[in-house]
Amino acid sequence: MSAQPVVAHSLSVEGGGASLAGTRCISCRTVYFPQVIACRNPVCEAKAVEPFGIKGSGTLHSFTIQRYRPPPLFEMDPWQPYALGLVDMDHGVRVMGMIDDVALDRIEIGMVLDLATRGIREVDDGPVITHVFVPVAGAGT
């Protein structure tokens, strides 16, 4: 039994913390998600990049509740309406993902959220996981 990411090589769980597979520019330090082959900052001359794990917490920029079931490529099972958010992480990268572990009517712009993982369905080997943002432990409800 082991958790497997819904998209291979996109997400890892090491030492208890979730980490998204991103890229960082070696010269201007811009962080990208998902991974890129070159830095697209026009003032950056070197353009060379290296793998970079995006982890930790961030601030909720905005969110929505998805009330209709998305097309079948999204395999959440069982399905129910869920929140999606844009979270400003360290290093100036804004990442989109599901918001979990908080009532849909308690989500507020500006709240601090941790990058984490959750299962969206079960297969024989265990849960299929994706990245989510959850309220920082102990921050209240």
Partner: peptide, 25 residues
Amino acid sequence: ATDHDFLRWKMMGATNPAYWAMEAQ
């Protein structure tokens, strides 16, 4: 795994209206 369009459907099921809704919010 580097294609935004694949990731938005596969990892979070983000539809087009979800993007506009976050701007409105």
